[in-house]
Design a binder for these strands. Structure first.
Length: 856
DNA sequence: GAGTTCGGAA
DNA sequence: TTGAATCCGAACTC
């Protein structure tokens, strides 16, 4: 028997959630015993909590029957990390705790996983199912158990017993009652109620009539009902046999694939065996069982029951979902029994025989189709790991009409191409619906690929697109694939789930995060997160590239820094820190270094002015929003095929809309505040590097940061996601060899000063272009006034004139002249047509010429 | 094809 | 923790 040891206090993010919670049983002055956290019991100070707190309380973490040690008075700043509610030192450790990898926080539902533990792998597989990963660093992974994460666990087929049994197995301490009770409470209520689409009508369905009776009485839900009576409809539930997902081992009869598969399986078994061996040390029974087997076994257990239901208004689904999910903690699961569906036509589609999906894709799909039906939910895979193929395989499994939504017209085209590439679908059945390509929607089963905006457009719809839209909203879809699903919660995009009637929804994304809190809406708009891949694991296995991340600290020059200190606006400050000459030099050095290694380099800058300065200063081609399509293609083609062009500069246009499989090195010179998603997305640009399988290949990711500026703060914030994924950022404070580099820009004081004055001038006028442009008309102040406001202003008459100079260069005279001449509308006349006066036209010409010179 | 409008991002 | 300012793409119009 091991002596009683102290369990460490845990602190961190999850605890924040509880900070304001009424339920936290912390009290420094009360000796009352706490019988629970519900807050409406009459013991303890919480009894005073007003009734409206009820929901808040409910949504909190494990209802705690755990009573921590009585608090002590805080003594110093660090003391809050060891507050009474986080001090679990009185928890009894199991004798063989060193073999078990989990630390459980009985109050906040936080879990710390030791990666060096012998049973780390099984514990991780298990935790992925029941908890949200917060952070995965070298030695510790941090998870949190929430209502949603448990909901996801239940929805992929785990039972309360499975969860408790495994937790007990992995935990270093005896499983606290608070957690057992929480799991019980949550699993009892979750997965009980389903949302079902039948004959274009929506029903709330359950095997348990009493739950539905309760819902009918709910004031919000009752208003969403279609029938008046309290009678429920009742019918027998159907039962189905097992299902085979295409592209998996069961699906492949073919010998060769079989052999290959078997070899892989054998390796897999060997790996598992290794893991098991370590298991046996403490007799882990359940851990041996792979999660997918769990899923298969847990199938069809509700076949005996009758199914009860009531109908709700199709337009109020979101309201019902929100009510159930957020307030009643009774999330609606959406499952589509597509094999029993005879109403909707079957789509003739299958994966091409040679197509094999990777193990994690299969894993993800087995979560979706685990019980023979299609569950709605979200699958998280890093860029380049084959999200598209997951979507296509899902479509091939259901074999019903599919609608694919993507963010841009380009990616719509790519989806269509991928469908044709991987499956045997008739190309005529894959229809693109964007503003530039409006296919006709046939009545038969088909695949529609369209942009979100095409579906969500509210006003001014072209006639033919309205026609197509009607076709889409009128019919029932089997599967809706939402690409880049993290964009969906934005209020606009909510409409897609409202407008399109679909039986199942599959969300795909690489980065399930936003800086706002709308991300949690996904839980009821689409469904729970079904699967999330571990980036590091995939890169170790060679599915995506290995990446070295580094943050390069560039000291500010004295002049720049003193200007930075004095700068009044953040705009000026950020420009100064971006244009820091030392940073420019670092950039130049890194480009040179990697070009010589044979890398293809992308340099990102959010700031367009800086982008131009850097690119032109280094004589490299660049692309930003205003760059025309033809020019873009020219630059990209050269980047891809021309060895002389190894570096291109991109504005944030490159974040999403360009496909750049050649890139192997990425340098970031400025970025948008603390956006973790942008950082992750940019990293994603090099994950699909074609050369990733070369021996010892590494991709590189640099962030250039000016020291002693806000950039330092933002940079650390941005990295949070990647660090949580397990990436390590090296800090480089000095680039070896930069001092001896020939032709370094901004070496002389003169050059630096010129740059500084340029930057200062720019920062004063940035975003206000008309001020600097027009040297023909010198009295700026007058015509700016005359211009009638800026971008947002201008109630009547000519709108948005001041957006560019052109609107008012030479002021009203030009416009007036044209007005007189033609009979065009006001709007059109506001801008002078004469290219000579247009700064932008001149600028465009100049740029085109410069780029051509560079490329040819 | 160029320009306008709108909405999103964070 | 919030907001302004900026950039960008899609859809539509002519």
């Amino acid at each position: 028997m091991a002596p009683k040891r102290k369990a460490p206090a845990v602190s961190g993010r999850a605890s924040k959630r509880v900070a304001s919670g009424v339920s936290t049983p912390v009290s420094l002055d009360s000796d009352d015993d706490y019988s629970g956290s519900e807050g409406n019991e009459s013991t303890g100070p919480n009894s005073a909590a007003p009734a409206e707190y009820d929901n808040v309380i409910k949504s909190y973490q494990p209802s705690s029957t755990y009573v921590p040690k009585k608090g002590k008075q805080p003594r110093d700043a660090a003391d809050q990390l060891f507050r009474a509610d986080r001090d679990f030192s009185d928890q009894q450790l199991k004798p063989d705790h060193h073999l078990r990898p989990l630390w459980l926080d009985p109050v906040h539902g936080k879990v710390v996983l030791e990666t060096f533990s012998p049973s780390f792998k099984q514990a991780q597989n298990f935790l992925i199912n029941i908890a949200e990963p917060l952070s995965r660093t070298n030695n510790m992974h941090e998870y949190t158990i929430t209502a949603h994460s448990l909901f996801a666990a239940v929805s992929v087929g785990l039972t309360e017993q499975d969860i408790v049994r495994q937790m007990e197995l992995f935990s270093k301490t005896k499983l606290p009652d608070s957690i057992i009770q929480y799991v019980h409470k949550v699993t009892q209520s979750f997965g009980k109620v389903r949302l079902v689409l039948k004959h274009s009508r929506y029903f709330i369905e359950s095997n348990d009539a009493s739950v539905l009776q309760m819902l009918i009485r709910d004031p919000v839900i009752s208003t969403c009902r279609l029938e008046e009576s309290n009678e429920l409809q009742t019918e027998k539930a159907a039962k189905m046999g097992p299902l085979v997902i295409p592209g998996t081992k069961e699906a492949h009869g073919n010998k060769e694939a079989q052999a290959r598969k078997e070899q892989q399986q054998q390796q897999q078994r060997q790996r598992e065996k290794d893991d098991e061996d370590s298991d046996d040390e403490f007799g882990g029974q359940a851990a041996e069982q792979d999660m997918t087997e769990f899923l298969r076994e847990e199938e069809d257990d509700d076949d005996l029951d009758e199914v009860h239901s009531f109908e709700i208004d199709g337009g109020k689904i979101q309201k019902v979902q929100q009510q159930c999910n957020v307030y009643l903690e009774l999330p609606l699961t959406e499952e589509y029994d597509f094999r029993a569906d005879v109403e909707n036509a079957t789509l003739d589609i299958d994966l091409k025989p040679a197509t094999q999906i990777r193990y994690y894709q299969e894993h993800a799909l087995s979560k979706m189709f685990g019980n023979g039906r299609a569950r709605s939910g979200i699958i998280v895979l890093p860029c380049g790991a084959g999200k598209t193929l997951v979507g296509i395989t899902a479509a091939c499994t259901e074999k019903k009409s599919v609608i694919v939504l993507c963010t841009s017209a380009t990616s719509a085209g790519q989806w269509r191409a991928e469908f044709i590439k991987w499956s045997n679908v008739n190309p005529d059945d894959v229809i693109i619906f964007t503003s530039s390509e409006k296919g006709r929607v046939p009545l038969r089963a088909c695949i529609i690929v369209c942009t979100y905006s095409m579906v969500t457009q509210n006003t001014r719809r072209a006639y033919d697109s309205q026609q197509t839209m009607d076709q889409i909203t009128k019919r029932e879809w089997g599967l809706m694939v939402l690409d880049e699903v993290h964009v969906v919660p934005a209020d606009m995009f909510r409409r897609v789930t409202e407008r399109i009637k679909t039986h199942s929804k599959l969300g795909l994304t690489a980065t399930l995060l936003r800086e706002d809190d709308k991300i949690k809406d996904l839980n009821f708009l689409i469904g729970p997160k079904l699967y999330e891949a571990n980036w590091l694991q995939l890169s170790e296995e060679g599915h995506i590239a290995r990446v070295q991340c580094a943050e390069v600290w560039c000291p500010m020059t004295i002049e720049f820094h003193s200007e930075y200190i004095q700068a009044k606006t953040t705009n000026k400050r950020s420009l100064l820190s971006i244009m820091n000459p030392r940073k420019f030099q670092a950039c130049q050095f890194l480009i040179d270094f990697h070009e010589r290694r044979g890398d293809k380099i992308i340099v990102f800058s959010d700031n367009v002015y800086a982008l131009k300065q850097y690119a032109e200063g280094l004589k490299k081609p660049y692309i930003f929003g205003d760059t025309g399509q033809r020019e873009r293609d020219l630059v990209l083609q050269n980047f891809q095929y021309n060895d002389a062009v190894s570096t291109i500069f991109l504005s944030k246009i490159g974040d999403t809309s360009l496909d750049l499989p050649e890139a192997t090195c990425l340098i970031q010179i400025s970025s948008h505040y603390g956006s973790r998603r942008q950082e992750a997305q940019r990293l994603g640009r090099i994950l699909r590097a074609k050369r990733r399988n070369d021996e010892g290949f590494n991709a590189f990711f640099y962030s250039l940061v000016s020291k002693d500026t806000m950039e330092m703060y933002y940079s650390s914030k941005r990295q949070a996601f990647l660090v949580d994924q397990g990436y390590a950022f090296k800090v480089i404070t000095h680039l070896n060899g930069i001092d001896s580099m020939p032709n370094l820009r901004f070496e002389t004081q003169d050059e630096k000063m010129t740059l500084l004055t340029d930057v200062l001038l720019q920062s004063e006028t940035a975003g206000d272009e008309e001020k600097i442009v027009d040297d023909l008309f010198s009295d700026r102040s007058t015509f700016r006034k005359a211009g009638g406001g800026g971008r947002k202003g201008g109630g009547s008459g000519v709108k948005r004139q001041a957006g560019t100079l052109s609107s008012l260069a030479g002021g009203e005279d030009m416009a007036y002249l044209e007005y007189q001449r033609g009979s065009r509308s006001n709007k059109e006349l506001a801008k002078p047509k004469n290219a000579f006066f247009s700064k932008e036209a001149r600028e465009r010409e100049r740029r085109k010429k410069a780029q051509r010179d560079m490329l040819l």
